[in-house]
Design a protein around this nucleic acid. Structure first.
Length: 263
DNA sequence: ATAGGCCTGGAC
DNA sequence: GTCCAGGCCTAT
């Protein structure tokens, strides 16, 4: 699920749940999560406390009072659940953080691809990331400078987190629809106006999602048809010109666009 | 650029 | 059964 808006919302959930109480227990329920959080590291969290939760791109950084950082990346299907610490956790529960106040924070992650890793004080666990997609430094000027000379298509280029942090497969398609730019255009050969339109389109798509975090919990095709303009709407009419939305595959991932109003 | 891997559930 | 999935890494 998670792109920037969803992770921003998840970070606020984590902030509210974790801050102000101690971690009283940690259970890692799926072996693939142990790769980055071995038993000893998980146990060492007991007694520690979350002082702050930061988001950078799609990453969450839980700053602990011990000075350490718990780095969380949801990847495809991760999400937080907060509930009373009682009874069996749900089937998709992969990690359970029990809290001293009787609540628990549960990482739900059906595909178990999420990463939770503990880093010592002074270590920055983040990979190289471009400017936040929602921030002022991410602009048409930035895009035109960074993409100069690149021959890859613009849509896959927007998924590169070193170019801009926080855009995933859904909002890349959505942003280009707002910008009226065809996703297959070579990334390095667009004009200043089109770069500006793309940056604006990214912000527009993300702002819409940030304003309605609850929509993220709607499920099914009907819901996605309601909340997106092109994503998962193959064959459905473009909301601007009624032309059927097309689906193509770029770098192994679905891209949706309007063949008439995106050029 | 592409393929494969990590994992599992859901739609068909 | 088969195909697909909102991420991202590595090898070719």
């Amino acid at each position: 699920m998670p792109e920037l808006p969803e992770v921003e919302y998840a970070a606020s959930v984590a902030r509210q749940a974790f801050i102000g109480t101690r971690i009283s227990g940690v259970r890692v329920l799926h072996p693939s999560l142990r790769r980055h959080l071995p038993q000893g590291a998980a146990e060492s969290l007991v007694g520690d406390e979350v002082a702050a939760v930061e988001r950078r791109g799609k990453h969450q950084l839980l700053r602990l009072t011990s000075g350490r950082t718990l780095h969380v990346h949801f990847r495809m299907t991760g999400d937080w659940e907060v509930e009373v610490d009682d009874g069996e956790p749900a089937r998709m529960a992969r990690i359970v953080f029990s809290l001293a106040n009787g609540m628990r924070v549960v990482l739900h992650d059906s595909r178990a691809l999420a990463v939770v890793a503990l880093h010592p004080a002074g270590v920055d666990p983040l990979p190289e990331l471009g400017p936040e997609a929602t921030s002022a430094p991410f602009s048409g000027t930035w895009l035109s400078g960074e993409l100069a000379g690149r021959t890859t298509a613009i849509k896959p280029a927007l998924l590169d987190q070193r170019l801009v942090a926080g855009i995933g497969n859904i909002y890349a398609s959505e942003a280009l629809w707002y910008a009226r730019v065809k996703p297959t255009r070579p990334a390095g050969r667009l004009g200043a106006e089109r770069y500006a339109a793309i940056a604006a389109g990214v912000k527009r798509a993300l702002a819409r999602a940030l304003a309605h975090p609850e929509r993220y919990y709607q499920e099914g095709a009907a819901a996605s048809a309601a909340r997106f303009n092109v994503y998962d709407r193959e064959g459905k009419p473009c909301r601007r010109c009624r032309t059927p939305i097309r689906r193509i595959v770029q770098v192994g991932r679905s891209t949706y666009f309007c063949p008439k109003c995106q050029r």
